[in-house]
């Protein structure tokens, strides 16, 4: 749905740049930053299906990120389980928590659903503070790396980037098939969705559970990248940050939120004055996007293309082809 041929060279160039990044990035910090973007994107790619496609306003995914990170730290660190096995389990724990959170809250209308996810994020913070024996409480907990070839910053970057590509492919596959259409139907008109038989609650719950898996995996990799986590690492602003990445990137697209994640993570690091502005920068950018391009930066490309080759919207009269219609109806009967 979103991959048109003119974009292909751009995507190939982007892929080459991403694979070779450690060779041209210059210093270790930039590789660290790229790894951080990839870990964030794993979460955002799943959240994008929830927010951008299904239209559910979840602002609490930072809680699921924390759960993934702590699960990984406890399994791979405290219990010394193989990090890859721990990673898979962390994803599973994220999925289960997403499912359990979605089970009651997805019945709520939009605003109350957002409040439920917010409350969830706050509860996770309190639990990690309280469960000292498990999480180290306010002092935090060390998170082991993956060892072997993934111990070096470059190796770990490739690992995280590879998993990020995997999740991007998952979400792209979903978005361009019937599931993607059903999700957008829930976002734009749940009445229409129900009228064609889309099981509203089931689609929402499935999508939300998937986003929990993505958040769990992203959280595990995020934790391993930080190498030490405390409840302070998972401030509520981080949850808003993920949400804003998608709003700025645009709804119902994948590339837009991806660019949004890169820009919002990297820009304050490279443009020093922006870093001083901190949250103000995010706020200002959000305001500009919402006021000027409410459909998000992902749609600027579409808009430019349509400006370059304006569509001839001459009024043409609907002229049914009745024989073809009759044949199509007959085919439907026999199917």
């Amino acid at each position: 749905m979103n991959l048109r041929n003119p974009r292909l060279p751009l995507l190939v160039a982007g892929a080459v740049a991403a694979v070779t990044l450690p060779f041209w990035a210059g210093d270790v910090y930039r590789v660290h930053l790229a790894t951080l973007i990839a870990a964030y994107w794993i979460l955002v790619s799943g959240l994008n299906l929830v927010v951008g496609f299904t239209g559910l306003l979840s602002v609490g995914h930072v809680g699921l990120l924390a759960i993934g990170a702590y699960a990984f730290a406890i399994l791979a660190g405290t219990h010394e389980i193989n990090p890859f096995v721990s990673l898979v389990i962390a994803g599973g724990v994220g999925g289960v928590c997403g499912f359990l959170l979605g089970l009651p809250s997805l019945r709520l209308p939009g605003f109350y659903f957002a409040m439920a996810t917010l409350a969830f994020a706050l509860i996770v913070t309190e639990v990690t503070l309280a469960q000292q024996e498990l999480t180290g409480g306010g002092a935090g907990i060390a998170v082991p790396g993956f060892g072997g070839p993934f111990e070096s910053p470059d190796g770990f970057y490739w690992l995280v980037a590879g998993i990020a590509v995997l999740f991007t492919v998952f979400t792209w596959n979903v978005s361009r098939r019937m599931w993607g259409r059903a999700m957008i139907a829930l976002r734009d008109s749940d009445v229409a969705a129900a009228s064609v038989g889309v099981p509203v609650y089931k689609v929402k719950l499935t999508t939300f559970t998937f986003s929990g898996v993505a958040a769990g995996v992203g959280g595990a990799l995020f934790g391993a990248l930080q190498s030490y986590i405390t409840p302070e690492t998972f401030v509520f602003e981080l949850g808003m940050f993920f949400f804003i990445c998608i709003v700025i990137g645009g709804r119902g697209v994948i590339l837009g939120p991806f660019v949004g994640t890169i820009v919002l993570t990297a820009l304050p690091e490279f443009v020093a004055p922006l870093a001083n502005l901190g949250q103000f920068f995010y706020g200002a950018l959000l305001l500009i996007v919402v006021l000027l391009v409410p459909e998000g930066i992902g749609h600027v490309f579409t808009w430019l293309r349509e400006r370059r080759s304006p569509r001839t919207t001459d009024k043409q009269v609907v002229t049914p082809d009745l024989e073809r219609l009759a044949a199509a109806i007959r085919a439907g009967r026999e199917a």
Partner: peptide, 29 residues
């Protein structure tokens, strides 16, 4: 009640949901 951001073809295809057999995981993979 149409899906404004989707094409005419996508809108019509949505009507075929009852015959879509693939699950979420199968679609993702």
């Amino acid at each position: 009640r149409l899906l404004g951001s989707l094409s005419v073809l996508d809108n019509a295809m949505l009507g075929g949901w009852r015959d879509a057999r693939a699950g979420f995981v199968g679609t993702a993979l």
